[in-house]
């Protein structure tokens, strides 16, 4: 299983980014191979509109099954749902902490977008 966490860094110790569409990037952790992959989101983050849905497409293309993020808007949520990706909300400080909480089953799945979309 591949887990994508929103972050601005490139290691497990990096801080989590609470935003989804405008996060600097994603760390995708493969629980089977234990391989950590850095996925850049710079192009989407700077786009004038639709950052969230494009970020969702990027995550889907990276093969993620799970997304852990602070907040996810309605349009991005729709794409993630369509791609069969489960969204978990998490307020952890670092990527490692977030993965830990997920492993212990302490994170709740988001059943809906938890923030309003930024119309931009």
């Amino acid at each position: 299983m591949k887990i994508a966490v929103t972050t601005s860094g490139d290691s497990l110790a990096a801080p989590m980014d609470s935003r989804f569409g405008r996060a600097a990037g994603f760390l995708v952790y493969d629980t089977d191979t234990k391989v950590l992959q850095v996925v850049d989101n710079a192009q989407n983050l700077n786009s004038a509109q639709g950052a969230g849905i494009q970020a969702a497409q990027t995550v889907a293309e990276a093969g993620a099954n799970v997304v852990i993020t602070g907040h996810c808007g309605p349009k991005a949520f729709r794409v993630l749902q369509a791609a069969g990706i489960t969204v978990y909300n998490c307020e952890a400080a670092t990527v490692q902490e977030a993965l830990g909480l997920f492993g212990e089953g302490k994170l709740l799945t988001a059943s809906d977008a938890d923030v309003e979309g930024h119309w931009s």
Partner: peptide
């Protein structure tokens, strides 16, 4: 250019 389309498999 408006990021209005998402391609999923």
């Amino acid at each position: 250019r408006f990021n209005a389309i998402v391609r999923l498999p």
